[in-house]
Design a protein around this nucleic acid. Structure first.
Length: 602
RNA sequence: GUGGGUAUCGCCUAGUGGUCUAGGGCGCCUGGCUGUGGCCCAGGUCAUCGGAGGUUCGAAUCCUCUUACCCACCCCA
């Protein structure tokens, strides 16, 4: 391999892109809800900005910055964090003059020269928010709430919120003095690292991970108890507000932050089972940063999250993350390649239907295989052009337009029909249905725009009407309930296997059906059978009317256990089913999109 | 900067001195079967075993050096 990506950098490959899209969508959504506007700052800044902003003595500035001289001789630094640049922009564009607080959010890659390890890269990506120009503790609570809700909306359960106050320039020196006093009598018991910290940054003694330092840190004087009256009132108020908002938090006296600019409120959000080493989001107040950067005194607060770490946790918890939309219709051909393939694909795209045109050289089998693997598996529909040896189109078939929404189905049909009118080459499938539709979106058989439309899937199979039987192996396996569910979930079965957990099945079925994008509804599955005792609650994403994945899940569940399922929309149950049976969600349910993050508990 | 681990086909891996001109699975390609797609069957494609040097009649297997990556510490999101 001639080249590989530099140490500590990573390619974000297509297979992972849906995580990024998912997180970005959630982040943007939450920012809109809280009134934050996006800001994008340059990738590099004047070195001085970070030296002053982040703090001379911090590790970031001392040894982790990517600093270099540009050709003009200026000292430039790739941004090691997001807050200072935003504050710089605030000052540079005189945002003091708009109504305060100014609420900004950003996505930015940040650079730190560190030894890479799990969840830590030299270039990583942060999503962050800053609220500048307001000192009220209520804002602290709102920012904390917002970050909490953000993680909730990602369906990242198992997280904890820790808060602390590290005081202000008035009370912190006092506290530091006391802390040093306390530690000075225990210097011998400290780990080597901490001995060094004693002088440089006594606060950091508190969050040392070495075992020998633990008891000392636990017994150390608590910062939050040594606050000046102003800071104490502020901290109390933050706690009050959080309680009022129903945000669960723990006070962690040993929570200190590594950047110099923090004051008063600081907080961290981390996965529950981790030993505090893998914070996924953190923030705090920085009332003196803007001043430090040359502005007038401007209180502010913000938080930042590490996207790679979030993804790590999403994967660890097997949170179902919707797949990115793939092609819906594949235009295939037999015989010689005809330009019509390209033309039809082009027309579909013009109408907003994602389409893939077969390559000229592929065999039909290869084309269909590609249709399977490039769309959403077996769900993708295809248009088949039957061509003569000379490349003339003889017939057009529309086959199995699964998952194509009702409107789109009509469109696809229209396009095919228009093509027929133009060329006179269109022909119905000699055996009957021309357009097959799955997922129960349409009644079993009807006519759209002159074309016969039929529900395909296993129902037809059962009644002996299915034109193209499920492959033997699948049919054998699915001799039970799956046959009745209207969807042949070949890919899901293949991917998760028969012993898959419920979460895996849901994950797999959701990746299969990409019309699913936002979790707005909860599907609660209560299993009593042997395979899945107890009760499990999963967020289910519904949009665009397709919920075939849910049908699959329930049918599956019902096979192995006595399951009951209910669909939760907004704040009430709208449908309930027992054991066997397909859960079909109708369009009208889908309209009622409500945030129900709070309800997803297990 | 410190400590530990790993390096065999695109991916996962078998292989601890000769049976390895490196085996299997996945993938990919071709074909058969299936009412032109999932299963199945057959065939094909793909590795001088991270690199360099050494020991030996003989090394993927032992030694030395080196590089890369991973993990943990430090610090941070």
């Amino acid at each position: 391999m001639p080249y590989q990506s530099p140490r500590g950098t990573a390619d974000i490959l297509p297979v992972d892109q849906h995580y990024w899209r998912y997180i970005e969508e959630k982040a943007v959504r939450i920012c809109e809800l809280y009134g934050y506007s996006r800001i994008d700052s340059p990738t590099f800044e004047d070195t001085g900005l970070f030296v002053r902003g982040v703090g001379q003595g911090t590790d970031i500035v001392e040894k982790e910055m990517y600093t270099f001289a540009d050709k003009g001789g200026n000292s430039i630094t790739l941004r090691p964090e997001g807050t200072a640049p935003v504050c710089r922009a605030y000052l540079e564009h005189s945002m003091q003059n708009v109504s305060q607080p100014v609420k900004l959010f950003y996505f930015a890659s940040v650079f730190r020269y560190e030894r890479p390890q799990a969840g830590r890269l030299r270039e990583h990506h942060q999503f962050g928010c800053e609220a500048i120009g307001e000192a009220d503790p209520a804002l602290d609570a709102e920012v904390i709430e917002m970050s909490w809700r953000f993680f909730q909306s990602l369906c990242l359960s198992n997280i904890s919120l820790q808060i602390n106050s590290i005081g202000c320039p008035v009370c912190r020196p006092e506290y530091l003095k006391e802390l040093r006093g306390y530690y000075s009598s225990h210097l011998e018991e400290l780990c080597p690292d901490c001995k060094g910290r004693f002088e440089r940054s006594a606060l950091r003694l508190l969050d040392c991970k070495q075992r020998q330092c633990q008891p000392l840190a636990a017994a150390a004087p608590k910062g939050a108890e040594k606050l000046c009256p102003e800071c104490a009132v502020h901290f109390d108020r933050v706690k009050e507000c959080l309680t009022a908002l129903g945000i669960p938090f723990q006070i962690n006296h040993r929570l200190v932050r590594g950047l110099d600019y923090y004051s008063k409120t600081v907080f961290e959000i981390q996965p529950l089972e981790e030993a505090g080493q893998s914070t996924i989001g953190a923030g705090g107040r920085y009332d003196h940063l803007i001043e430090e950067l040359g502005g007038k005194h401007t209180p502010a607060i913000g938080f930042a999250t590490g996207i790679e770490r979030i993804i790590l946790n999403l994967k660890k918890l097997a949170v179902p993350v919707p797949e990115l939309p793939g092609p819906v219709v594949y235009v295939a051909h037999t015989g010689e390649y005809a330009v019509e393939v390209l033309k039809i694909a082009s027309e579909l795209r013009t109408s907003g239907i994602r389409a893939l045109a077969a390559a000229s050289s592929k065999s039909l089998k290869a084309q269909l295989r590609q249709a399977n693997s490039s769309g959403y598996g077996f769900g993708a529909g295809y248009i088949l052009l039957q061509c003569s040896a000379e490349g003339k189109v003889l017939r057009i078939y529309l086959i199995q337009i699964f998952e194509v929404r009702r409107q789109a189905q009509a469109l696809v049909a229209n396009i095919a029909r228009a093509h027929y009118n133009r060329t006179g080459k269109f022909a119905l499938h000699p055996d009957g249905p021309v357009l097959n539709i799955g997922s129960g979106a349409l009644p079993p058989a009807r006519v759209i725009d002159g074309l016969i439309v039929a529900d395909s899937g296993a129902e037809g199979f059962d009644r002996g009407k299915r034109k193209r039987p499920v492959p033997r192996s699948v049919a054998r396996r699915d001799s039970g309930v799956l046959r009745d569910c209207g969807v042949v979930p070949g890919r899901a079965i293949k991917e998760v296997g028969f012993d898959a957990s419920l979460a895996q099945i849901i994950g797999a079925s959701q990746t299969k059906y990409n019309s699913i994008t936002t979790p707005n509804h909860g599907l609660v599955i209560e299993g009593i059978g042997k395979t899945k005792p107890g009760r499990e609650v999963f967020p289910v994403n519904i949009r665009d009317g397709g919920l075939a994945g849910t049908e699959l899940t329930l049918a599956w569940l019902a096979q192995g256990s006595q399951a009951a399922a209910r669909l939760w929309v907004g704040n009430g149950w709208i449908e309930e089913r027992n054991a066997v049976g397909v859960f079909s969600v109708r369009d009208e349910y889908v309209i009622a999109q409500t945030q129900v993050q709070g309800q997803f508990t297990t």
